Simulated scan of single mutants.
Amino acid sequence: MPIVRSEEPIALVGGGQIGPVDLDLVLIRVNTVVAADGGAAPVLDSGRIPDAVIGDFDSLESRYRERVPVDRLFQIREQDSTDFDKALRSIDAPLVLGAGFLGGRLDHQLAVLNTLVRRQDQPCILLGEREVVFHAPPRIVFNVTPGDPVSLFPFLRATGRSRGLEWPIDNLVFEPNGQVGTSNRALAEVELQMDGPGLLVMLPRYALDQVMQAFLSGQTGRWPARAE
């Protein structure tokens, strides 16, 4: 059962690498903020109390935990999933904006990207140092400056069609150990239509609002939850 529900986008903050303006970029776009375990620290340091803190609490220092009301602390003790997974699966919202999950240790980043694909029913945009990353929905349209990168990386076998890319994806089969689509480039407005889940999209950071608007438009479609 979801712990946090909202009809509006929700911010999810992790305890990983957060740039000097990353938190502000996310928080000014939402009314509700959830922290994944140690992500409560930067939220509290910003002067805001998280609406919920979710995780196993192995990285949440007591000096921060004591500042969060008890009814906002949700400890999930199992160790078979990351705190990002625990938090994302506990949110019911049209969109999640994540900060503090990219950068730092490579194994942590890979686990986060794995969760983006496994939690395919929860649209989520992650803010990185230079890019935004999201799991491609059934259909999405966005504008980036012609010549800017539109990188596509499969975590599952994926096929689809595109418009506005220098190298169209029509008739390609993407696979983690085969064809990938990194360093593709935009020619004009880009449209992706996917036959199934599994493809991650990486765009320049300035595209954050465009991608948000696309997800919130109701026109992207949504993948069903995977069977556990």
Score class of each variant (00 low, 15 high):
Pro137Glu: 02
Ala136Val: 07
Phe84His: 03
Asp148Met: 10
Arg130Val: 00
Val173Gln: 10
Ala111Gly: 03
Phe142His: 06
Ile140Pro: 06
Leu116Ser: 05
Asn143Pro: 07
Arg77Met: 10
Arg161Asn: 14
Leu126Met: 00
Pro154His: 02
Val96Lys: 05
Gly128Val: 04
Val150Asp: 04
Val117Met: 01
Gln79Glu: 15
Ser81Asn: 14
Arg118Glu: 06
Val96Tyr: 06
Ser162Glu: 12
Thr82Pro: 11
Ala136Gly: 11
Gly164His: 09
Ser151Lys: 01
Ile76Asn: 14
Leu156His: 14
Thr115Pro: 01
Pro146Cys: 07
Ile91Pro: 09
Leu127Tyr: 12
Arg119Pro: 03
Cys124Pro: 07
Leu88Pro: 08
Leu97Phe: 02
Gln120Lys: 02
Arg163Lys: 13
His135Leu: 05
Pro154Arg: 12
Glu166Asn: 15
Ile169Asn: 02
Val112Gly: 01
Phe101Met: 08
Leu95Trp: 05
Leu113Phe: 07
Ser151Asp: 00
Asp92Asn: 12
Leu172Thr: 12
Leu127Asp: 04
Pro146His: 14
Leu113Cys: 04
Arg130Phe: 12
Asp80Gln: 15
Arg157Ile: 08
Phe134Arg: 04
Pro94Glu: 09
Ile140Gly: 02
Glu175Ala: 13
Asp80Tyr: 10
Leu97Lys: 07
Leu110Ser: 04
Glu131Gln: 11
His135Glu: 04
Phe134Ser: 05
Gly147Gln: 11
Glu78Trp: 00
Leu156Gly: 04
Gly103Pro: 08
Val112Asn: 03
Glu129Lys: 09
Pro168Thr: 13
Ala111Lys: 03
Arg130Asn: 12
Arg139Leu: 12
Leu97Trp: 01
Leu165Val: 13
Glu175Lys: 08
Ile169Leu: 10
Thr159Ile: 11
Ser162Asn: 13
Thr145Arg: 13
Gln122Pro: 08
Ser81Gln: 15
Asp148Asn: 14
Pro168Gly: 13
Thr159Cys: 14
Val150Gln: 08
Gln120Tyr: 01
Arg161His: 11
